[in-house]
Simulated assay, not measured.
Amino acid sequence: MDLQLAGRRALITGSTSGLGEATARLLAAEGAEVVIHGRNAQRAQAVADSIIEDGGKAAVAVGDLGTDAGADLTAEQALADGVVDILVNNAGGYEHLSWGDATPDVWLHTYNVNVVSGVRMIQRLVPAMRERDYGRVVTIGGGLGMQPFDSHPHYNASLAARHNLGVSLARDLAGTRVTSNIVAPGAILVPAVQDFLTALAPERGWGQTWEEIEYNSVREIVPNDRVRYGRPEEIAGAVAYLCGPYAEYISGATIRVDGGTVRSAF
């Protein structure tokens, strides 16, 4: 299926690894020119070079979105070779902390990194989309924004805020051909998650092979209809769809890509 992204330019924040990298690679494969963003120039350039070697078009923008200056620099670099039609707000981070350990300073830092960073890029790029009467904004949220764990509450709350701002932006864009939607991943298998689960397996009695660990840990932690973790490419597929013309009639939606997760209890 051709998602009709040829000729579009997309900035994917936090795209030097994980979900962001998978999204950038798929958008490039669908014909979009992608801007790889990160805080490390070498890592960003390596991803861009790999995409170019595969026949895609890619540029690089480096900057810390946790600051106004970093967001200015990122936007300047992203716009250097043309307009940005698609903004994928993926950048963010978190620490595994309990309610007792997540101090107010941690909450403020997490909100800045996970929420205000996206606001900075929206305010720098969406006005031009509105003027051209075309654009796509996709915010990467998460299942923990709707079904939070009792741990890392600062991160759970920041995901809920990302969902909320995506819908608020959609309402603000009413009547234009600029859309804003949210993709909410469930538990996704990236190397750090696999390493964490493998280390925890002996204590939890999940088995020795990865097949056993995946099946048993999913049933205990994030029960879902597929009885497995999602893959980054599956999140990228949902984002790519929302970026194209077939999603013109989708506004302020939260697309869950979580295998049908119905509860979370770590």
Score class of each variant (00 low, 15 high):
A161K: 09
P245Q: 01
A201T: 04
T16Y: 12
V34G: 10
I182H: 00
Q194F: 00
H163W: 01
D49E: 13
F266K: 06
T110Y: 00
A265G: 05
L65F: 06
M146G: 06
S15T: 07
N224Q: 03
G14W: 03
P202F: 04
E214H: 08
I52G: 06
L197D: 02
R177P: 02
D105G: 05
R132Q: 13
V35F: 09
A157P: 05
A78T: 10
V113A: 01
A32P: 04
G186P: 11
S50E: 14
E233V: 15
A41K: 09
G70F: 04
A32V: 04
R219C: 01
G166F: 07
V119I: 13
D225W: 12
A41F: 08
L108R: 15
A44G: 12
R120V: 06
D258S: 05
E53F: 02
M146Y: 01
A174E: 09
Q4W: 02
W206M: 05
S180M: 10
G118I: 11
A247G: 08
D68A: 14
G135H: 06
Q42H: 13
R9K: 06
N164C: 10
A69T: 10
D150T: 10
L173R: 02
A199W: 04
R263Y: 07
M121L: 14
Y155P: 04
G7P: 13
R162H: 00
Y215T: 13
G143F: 01
L197V: 12
G55F: 09
